[in-house]
């Protein structure tokens, strides 16, 4: 296994720490998504991997080679930029052949190779076009072909879908993932879109405030988020703040049972996915009286927006499920199953 290994890599701009000391391993041939809100340091991390920024501290290794001080043009990691950064003064074919020609390949061979790369991204016959004549999706394909032309050991993409419209974005995510699997190339994608990360990635790295919050496969990130930030950022969740008592959590005067274990009286935050909560008719354990405020029927799912003593709760049902049909103003009970409740420590505020 000769993946890409970051040890203690950090970056400071002036007085602000953009990336806290970070240890990460990117497995060979896998697609890793760096996911987080804007300003979380994910792009800075990617630029350090590309060699476009120097880490303030730490070491970057590719397999056994230390590449920390290797400049970008010697690493030659192919990179797709948010704006695509295609050269407007060259044709599409020349853009794709750029790295080959400056790398010393004879021009005819390079341009021929560029043509076959264009075929891989389904742009046959576009070689003589100017960049300005292409649509957003076509530009992205050119950018991908251009970055792959030099057969990089690591393939980097910085928010590659953000310049595309929503429909095209979903198609391109699947297409890019298939291409990556076919080529078996180590790939790192920076994104702020959790759907994009979950569609494409083998591993997701969730970041916030320059720190790595969780590293795990998509399903684990979704179902077992390690902290409240991840639970909130990935998918939707209902949150309640309370105090841990033996065997349960007190939220105001309401007690909820959970299997989690904390020191008595420590402040905690509870989280539950809307699809894990459900409506109930009979009172029982972890069932709380609720009033329906709003019903949102989106077709594939129905959401019940409830008001309770412990705060607002959203309950979600897939289409076709046979929950009791309620309308705004109805009184009901909401069930928060103990094993679906995730409990995180909370700094008392």
């Amino acid at each position: 296994m000769s993946g890409l290994i970051l040890s203690g890599v950090s970056k400071t701009f002036g007085n602000t720490r953009a990336v806290e000391p970070t240890d990460l391993t990117f497995a060979k041939g896998q697609l890793t998504a760096l996911l987080g809100p804007s300003g979380c340091g994910k792009t800075t991390l990617l630029r350090m991997i590309a060699g476009l920024e120097n880490p303030t501290r730490g070491q970057i290794k590719l397999g056994d080679d230390d590449i920390t001080d290797l400049p970008a043009h010697k690493r030659k990691f192919g990179m797709v930029f948010q704006s695509f950064a295609l050269f407007p003064h060259y044709t599409v074919r020349e853009n794709v052949a750029y790295s080959l020609i400056i790398g010393g390949m004879p021009k005819p061979t390079a341009l021929e190779k560029a043509e076959s790369l264009l075929a891989t991204v389904q742009l046959n016959g576009f070689g003589d076009r100017r960049v300005g004549e292409l649509s957003g999706g076509q530009r992205q394909r050119v950018a991908i072909a251009r970055a792959l032309a030099q057969e990089p050991q690591v393939f980097l993409l910085d928010e590659p879908m953000s310049a595309l419209d929503a429909k095209l974005r979903e198609d391109m995510q699947v297409e890019l993932r298939l291409l990556q699997q076919r080529l078996g190339i180590t790939t790192i994608v920076v994104t702020h879109d959790q759907r994009e990360a979950m569609t494409m990635a083998d591993t997701i790295v969730v970041m916030s405030n320059g720190r790595v919050e969780q590293v795990a496969p998509p399903q684990e990130i979704y179902h077992r988020p390690t902290n409240a930030f991840v639970a909130d950022f990935i998918g939707k969740a209902n949150f309640f703040d309370g105090l841990y008592k033996s065997g349960g959590v007190m939220i105001g005067s309401q007690a909820l049972e959970t299997p989690a274990n904390f020191a008595p009286d420590s402040p905690v935050r509870l989280a539950i996915r809307p699809e894990s909560a459900c409506l109930a008719r009979e009172p029982g354990q972890n069932r709380i009286p609720a009033v329906v405020g709003f019903v949102r029927d989106l077709g594939p799912v129905r959401e019940y927006h409830l008001t309770t003593d412990i705060g607002p709760i959203i309950v979600e049902y897939a289409a076709g499920s046979d929950e009791q049909k309620l309308t705004a103003g109805d009184k009901t009970l909401v069930h928060l199953p103990a094993d679906a409740l995730r409990v995180y420590p909370r700094t008392a505020a």
Binding site: H73, K76, S99, Q150
Partner: peptide, 15 residues
Amino acid sequence: IDRSHLDAAATMGAT
């Protein structure tokens, strides 16, 4: 000139 053009050139091996 878009600075990302220079970054792009660098990642493709341009000094």
